[in-house]
Structures are given as structure tokens and as C-alpha cells.
Design a protein around this nucleic acid. Sequence first.
DNA 1: ACTATATTGTTTGTATTACAAACTTTTTAG
DNA 2: CTAAAAAGTTTGTAATACAAACAATATAGT
Lengths: 151, 151
Amino acid sequence: MSNYDDSFDKLEELSMVDSLVQLSFVIQNILAKIGTQHDLSIIQIRLLGILRDREPSMLQLAKHLGLDKSSITGLVDRAQRRGLVERTVSQSDRRGFNVRATPAGWKIIHEVGEQIERQITLVTEGLTGEERAQLIALASKILVTTPGVSR
Amino acid sequence: MSNYDDSFDKLEELSMVDSLVQLSFVIQNILAKIGTQHDLSIIQIRLLGILRDREPSMLQLAKHLGLDKSSITGLVDRAQRRGLVERTVSQSDRRGFNVRATPAGWKIIHEVGEQIERQITLVTEGLTGEERAQLIALASKILVTTPGVSR
DNA sequence: ACTATATTGTTTGTATTACAAACTTTTTAG
DNA sequence: CTAAAAAGTTTGTAATACAAACAATATAGT
């Protein structure tokens, strides 16, 4: 009877599958909506999120994002065209680039981050402090025991 | 310091935002991977999921999925071309169709559903029965207080 | 040093997804 | 009975994603 659907009719007696799947859609929709406000897709948000504390090569980006390397070219191209990231030539390997956020990229990911923070907080507003702590603990427990998500 | 990234480095001290965002990516990756095995995208899984207990019109589908009606045409077209769904003319409104799963569609969504069930169960395997119940309760609490996700 | 192989990233071609605006057909309202 | 609304489709555009082929550089083996 599970739904694989973020429709919000009849929430009675959710199974583990339903509750997690629907919750994931709620979160993803938050990310998508905030992204839209900044003309960013979820994948672009993830790209910028990675670049907050790294300057990875194209290949490392591909691994981080779980995409083929050929997908990264266009992703970075578009972000670069918008002035959000830049390629810097690697001095150790003249084939490769490192990708890093520009100041404009930093600015936008900072804003997006704050909005995500606010929206997620809003969504969990109905929980008590204890419940929130429980949720973090449970999610973390799942995450640590979950083998690498991006392959 | 949150990541908006499903990379699995340093899980120490996750915030609410991080834990929920990363958890959502874990779930979405499960859906995507299982979909890939059946040559289905997440949106196609959702389409078939909806059709398990409904025969909506194109417009109702658009609302359920949170997409523009023009996006539904192609989505249904492709599923129909694969023999997974069919359009049935509405007798009440000669402009409209109802979309329903074919036996092949039922079969595939059933299989996909079982796999999703198994994978999600696997991911929550580290939790005790009580923790599982807690997680369902917490997710449900969030879901009921979250206003319509698909507009 | 030199050749063979591997690696990094781009290009090309294809398919899906998604939207917006314009359009067709049918329905409903006045 | 005509004007407006509604249901879907079409058209055009863009982003996303992959796979295979390719260019340039790096590395290994001899």
C-alpha cells in the first residue's frame, strides 16, 4: 500500500517505507523550491555545497556526485558561465583542473544554506527538543551504517 | 558546515539539517538505483505508484506529481510506449483521459515496490524495533504538519 | 630514453525531464 | 448560442545524464 508519491492524502498508519520515502520527498522539495528561487537545481546546490570546503578535480566531483565524468563538464560549464565557479589549472597535472567557488558562488551557497536551514527548522517545528534529538540520532544511526551512497 | 551532499565523509555531529538532507539522499538513491534496474526513473516510479490505486486524469496526475500538465503528456507517452500504462477516454468529458496501469505496469510496480521495501528495511536494519517505531512516529509527525508538498 | 598504457577531461550523440506559450477540442456559463 | 474556461497536446528551449570516442598528458615497463 505504499505510495512512492509525495501526495499527502491519508497519512494514517505509515509504514517505515512510506514514512521515509515521503519524508525524503518533503526534504527534496524544500531543496528544489529554494533552489528555484535562486535559479539553481538540486544538483547545482550540491555542487556548490561541495565547493564550500573543497577544490576538487572534475573526476573527484564526479565521484562525490555519483555522476559520470562527462556529466560534470556541462554542470561545471553552466555554473562557470554564471560566474559561480571557476576552473583552476592543476600545477601537478596539466590535464586536470580544480574547481572552486567564486565569491559570487560563495554568496549564493551561503544564502541558500541559510534558507535550507530555516525551512528544515520550520518543518521540524512541531517536534519537541527531545524528539528532534531523537530524530538526529536515528538518522545518524542509519547514515553511519549505510555504505557509500555515491557508489 | 552542512553539506547538501550525499558524500559520506565525516558524519560526526550531524545537525538536523544535515541528517535530514543526507537521509533524503540515501532514500532517493535507493529509489534511483532500483529504478535503474528496471529502466525506470524516480518520476516514473512515482507515476506507477500513483496508478496502483487510482486512474487519474492527466491534470490530476500533474497535480499529484507537482508538474505542469505539459510535462505529463511526455511522461505518460513514454510509459505508454513501453506498455506500462494506457489512456482510457473519459466518458464524462471527451477532452480528457484517465490513465491506468496495464498488467505489465502492475507487474513492474509490484516488483519495484518489493525491492524498495527490502532496501529500506536493509537500511534501517541497525535500528531496534523500538527505534524503528520512533522513527516512523517522528517522520509521521513531520509529514502531518507539513503542508501540501506537491502543491 | 622510448614506447605502450592509463588517466583526465571534453566532445558528440541520444534520451529524459521540465517548463511556458500557443493551440485544438470540448465543456460550461451567461 | 456565443464567449470564456478547461483538458490535453504541440512546439520550442534548456538542463540533466550517459556512453563511446577522442585529445592531451602522465606513468610504467623495457
